[in-house]
Amino acid sequence: MSTENPWKVLNSEKIYDNNWISLTEHQVLNPSGGEGIYGEVHFKNIAIGILPLDADLNTWLVGQYRFPIKEYSWEIVEGGGVLNADPIESAKRELAEETGLTAKRYTEIQRMHLSNSVSDELAIIYLAQDLQLGESSPEETEELIVRKLPFEEAYLMVMNGVITDSISVAAILKTKILLQQGKI
Rank of each mutant, 00 (worst) to 15 (best):
V82Y: 04
E139P: 05
T102Y: 01
I48W: 02
V82C: 03
N84V: 05
E98G: 04
A91P: 01
A91V: 03
T59P: 02
E71W: 06
G100C: 07
S90W: 01
I125F: 04
D86S: 07
V62Y: 02
Q64I: 09
E139V: 10
I124M: 10
H42F: 10
I50R: 00
A85I: 00
Y106T: 01
L95Y: 01
V41Q: 13
T107C: 04
N84D: 09
E89A: 07
H113T: 11
K70S: 14
E108M: 13
F43E: 09
D120R: 08
S119R: 09
R66V: 15
F67N: 09
H42Q: 13
S90F: 03
S90D: 08
D56A: 12
L131Q: 02
T99I: 08
S119F: 06
H42K: 12
L114I: 12
I76F: 01
Y106A: 05
G81S: 10
L61G: 05
W60Y: 14
D130K: 10
A85W: 00
S115I: 10
L61I: 15
A85P: 00
H42T: 13
D86T: 04
N84H: 06
D54L: 05
T59I: 02
D54S: 07
I124H: 06
P68E: 14
G100W: 03
T102G: 02
